[in-house]
Design a protein around this nucleic acid. Structure first.
Lengths: 230, 230
DNA sequence: CCAAAAGTGTTCTCACTACACCCATGT
DNA sequence: ACATGGGTGTAGTGAGAACACTTTTGG
């Protein structure tokens, strides 16, 4: 079996765009870099993919690397977040240290998991930023983040499941409507949004549960995503 | 500036799913492997990304690598094909020679460019296969191809531009309808499809041109994609 | 009582569907 | 003449937009 020792190789990394909604704003988790290059600047969480060790001695898959980095940098367990590969970024000069190809991931986190995120991340090194009040980002991370936001918007208009990961497990119709409005930057007529939502209910994807929730006005009915074996 | 000599690295490749329509069937271009591993089996065209040399001495971008491989293996120029990054495949054991991460691309080729494809590829080594009559594929290329087909179908239902790359530059409404029917495996009412198509015309995306085309029945009007500066 | 948000009803438009029918060409 | 595919007309259905209205809470 021939080997492939003869090719020069790039380093390979994963970078993760971790999004959530806080204070009625779409926010992204950034890490302040301690080391050169870009020391002191903000960057997406991420790191190099392990290519040796593990079962088989060849390291971890790309998804596993993303899951590991997510856990290491945020303390979040992956089955609580929406994690999805986005795109490979491989411009020759994107990292001043040398050739690095980065696989970008999107992670969508529910706001009721904050306390854990805060506990796991060193507060001095990690912070949430509103996506339209960003600092200067290291590497090509501004481009990656832009790609992720476009992707999220496109995704949302095709697959409502993403929206549910930006909302507490028990939600009102208004909660979900706000998610759409914040991400898409538009407003929806509440009557029309409601009818759209109720179609999901009688398709069996969402179920009403007992109880109500105070909202500042008339209390709202509460719903829950139906757990399904995919 | 710190370097990154300390990480073991994977090799990085691009694999290209080249699709076209021939004989009323969706077809994919495959290469017969001459070397181990998988010698004698069919595989997607592709190759390793150059990581040294070129301007800056760091090699080529991922897109450039895909364009280069496409030109080398099919003789096609990239501005005649729809070329798009699909997904990164990085399972640790996907290549028996060692750790290889592959960036998959989708290339969609018009059938009127065949003669050049045939001339450029060694006929013994390259062949078109109908996508549902495939041989056993090397590596994880069956998975990559499946991903590409799903992606193509999803793309088509959102963005009609892809369809035009599967059809001669001057086309009839029937030509385009057949593309949709072949890819989606359904049939469309011709009257309804026609109206949908005509909306694109008065949105200015397509323009009628003089002349007609014989079709086996009444001759059809001919249209052309409007060239636009994006 | 008033503000605020939930929830209901009604009307219009527009795209997609189904299906019946006419038109121009090759054989 | 007739088969074949292009092209036209019409009626129904269902989703979304717009907007007026009622209901139930907190202050």
């Amino acid at each position: 079996m021939p080997r492939i020792y003869d090719h020069p190789r790039p380093a390979i990394a994963v970078d993760i765009v971790v999004l959530t909604i806080r204070h009625e704003r779409l926010q992204v988790l950034l890490i302040e870099r301690a080391l050169e290059p870009f020391a002191g600047q903000w960057a997406l969480p991420g790191g190099f993919v392990k290519v040796e060790g593990g079962r088989g001695g060849r390291g971890e898959s790309l998804d596993a690397a993303a899951r590991r980095e997510l856990r290491e940098e945020t303390g979040l367990d992956v089955d609580e977040v929406w994690l999805e590969q986005l795109h490979a970024f491989g411009a020759p000069s994107r990292d001043p240290r040398g050739r690095v190809v980065s696989i970008a991931y999107l992670a969508v986190v529910s706001p009721d998991l904050f306390s854990r995120v805060q506990a796991a991340t060193d507060a001095a090194a990690a912070r949430w930023f509103t996506v339209d009040e960003l600092p200067r980002l290291a590497f090509d991370h501004a481009e990656i983040l832009g790609f992720a936001l476009d992707h999220l918007r496109a995704r949302l208009s095709q697959d409502p499941r993403v929206a549910f990961h930006l909302v507490p497990r028990e939600l009102t119709i208004g909660d979900l409507r706000r998610v759409y409005e914040i991400i898409e930057g538009t407003t929806y007529d509440k009557a029309n949004f409601r009818r759209r939502f109720l179609r999901l209910v009688d398709e069996g994807k969402i179920e009403p549960i007992d109880g109500q929730q105070s909202t500042g006005g008339r209390p709202a009915a509460v719903y829950r995503l139906v757990e399904r074996a995919d």
